[in-house]
Simulated assay, not measured.
Amino acid sequence: MSFFGNTIQTLEQSMDYASLKNRTISNNISNVDTPNYKAKQVQFQDVLNNEMNTSFQSKQTNPRHLAFGQSNENSFRVTTDQSTQYNHNGNNVDIDKEMSELAKNQIYYQALTNRINGKFNSLQSVIRGGN
Rank of each mutant, 00 (worst) to 15 (best):
L66E: 12
P63D: 03
N74D: 05
F56W: 15
N74F: 15
N72T: 13
I25L: 06
K38R: 05
Q60P: 01
V47P: 00
T61Q: 14
R77S: 11
A39I: 07
F68Y: 14
A67Q: 14
P35W: 01
S71C: 07
K38V: 01
Q57G: 11
Q57W: 12
A39C: 06
N36C: 05
N22W: 14
A39W: 01
S75H: 09
N53K: 14
I29K: 05
L20F: 05
E73K: 12
K40I: 10
N28F: 05
L66H: 15
N36W: 06
N50E: 13
S30R: 13
N74P: 02
S71A: 11
N22P: 00
Q45T: 08
D33N: 15
N49L: 12
L20K: 04
Q41L: 07
N62Q: 08
K59G: 04
F44A: 02
F76I: 02
T79Y: 13
L66P: 07
G69W: 08
Q70A: 11
S26Q: 07
I29S: 03
F68H: 09
N28E: 00
P63C: 03
Q45C: 02
T61E: 14
P63M: 02
F68G: 05
Y37P: 01
Q41F: 13
S71P: 04
D33F: 12
N72D: 14
N72E: 14
D46N: 11
K40C: 03
K59V: 10
G69E: 02
T61P: 06
V42A: 07
V42D: 03
Q57H: 13
T61G: 15
K59H: 09
I25H: 01
S71F: 09
E51R: 11
I29H: 07
S58P: 04
T24K: 05
K38W: 04
N36A: 10
V32A: 12
Q70E: 12
S30T: 06
S26H: 05
R64I: 10
H65I: 02
L48Y: 13
I25W: 02
S71D: 10
T54S: 11
Q43D: 12
N72P: 06
N62W: 10
N53V: 07
R64P: 04
N74M: 09
